[in-house]
């Protein structure tokens, strides 16, 4: 594939509508889960059926605890309603995790994007910027990842693609200082949305989590109430460790929402069910492809429907 073809793909118009696109993205998830659930639902609820259900839930990354509880509920219900019950249980959990972005009523609204390394923060920011720009909003990106080689350049490329401004310092600069300058700048005064990129960090590195707290303090000091949204990006292929990630990031800086990325692979992303159950952090968006428009609002009904269709 040549560069221009790749670029064309990035800008390709979405002709299928939101639901169609979501379904496409979840196709493999759905196919796998549904085919096997049909198998389970075909028979009576016995030890084998329960074990099959356990396998389905566990292999979707729901985790032992959530799977056990859901199966416990199913066991207590009439086998005739097996399918509807399972669907209903999963929907009920996902519904609690539905929420929209908290950017209205703030000018500028500040969004801080955090997460472990390699889960798609910068790409998500590119997509988010495009989305806000399409809504007619003035967007400013802040290159707060001053650590990883070429992270600033990567965000700048996205800035050019989408056609929004990027505030950046040199590589190795203090991210707090970048954020300070960005919020102080004239550009921020004119912006509707300011999106701050941060360096990927493992939640187990205490000094790096302290750094995030500091960045957040700087924002709040310069613009009381900011950040209005703290988005934790989680890769859909992550296993049970995602719960720890969410827990520790949440404890450190108060996560307001999760963006679940890379749902276009074969990973099921079932970990969000466990996260919503245990931590009550909503899922705001899902990434369902590499194209610039492949970022969608999280919708519990669609997500459940797509899983069970």
């Amino acid at each position: 594939m040549t560069g221009s073809e790749v670029k064309k793909l990035f800008y390709m118009e979405n002709k299928k509508g939101v639901l169609g696109k979501l379904k496409d993205g979840l196709l493999k998830t759905r196919r796998n889960l549904t085919e096997r659930i049909e198998g389970v639902f075909g028979g009576r609820i016995d030890a084998q059926a329960l074990e099959d259900m356990e396998e389905i839930l566990i292999t979707s990354d729901l985790g032992v605890k959530a799977s056990k509880e859901i199966i416990g509920i199913i066991e207590r219900t009439d086998p005739v309603n097996l399918r509807e019950t399972l669907k209903g249980e999963i929907f009920n959990i996902l519904k609690k995790g539905e929420a929209s972005l908290l950017t209205n009523g703030h000018k500028p609204a500040v969004i801080m994007v955090v997460g472990v390394n390699g889960n798609g923060k910068t790409t998500t920011i590119g997509k988010l910027a495009k989305r806000f720009k399409d809504e007619g909003k003035e967007v400013l990106l802040v290159a707060g990842d001053t650590f990883r080689a070429a992270a600033i350049e990567q965000l700048s490329v996205w800035g050019e693609r989408v056609g929004v401004k990027v505030v950046k310092h040199k590589s190795g600069a203090d991210p707090g200082a970048v954020v300070f300058d960005a919020i102080q700048s004239e550009k921020a005064k004119g912006a509707d949305v300011v999106i701050v990129d941060t360096a990927g960090r493992l939640h187990t590195k205490a000094p790096l989590m302290e750094e995030l707290k500091k960045i957040k303090r700087v924002m709040d000091k310069e613009l009381p109430g900011a950040p209005h949204e703290v988005l934790l990006v989680i890769d859909a292929s992550t296993g049970q460790n995602a719960i720890e990630q969410a827990r520790i990031f949440h404890e450190a800086i108060g996560v307001t929402g999760i963006v679940l990325t890379k749902l276009d692979g074969t990973a099921k992303g079932g970990i969000i069910i466990a996260i919503i159950r245990e931590l009550e952090i909503p899922v705001k968006m899902i990434g369902i492809g590499e194209k610039i428009d492949d970022l969608r609002d999280f919708n519990a009904e669609e997500f459940t429907e797509a899983l069970f269709e």
Partner: peptide
């Protein structure tokens, strides 16, 4: 491969 990968590791 990422050590944090879940059940999908086998497919990948």
């Amino acid at each position: 491969a990422d050590a944090m990968t879940g059940q999908d590791a086998v497919n990948i």
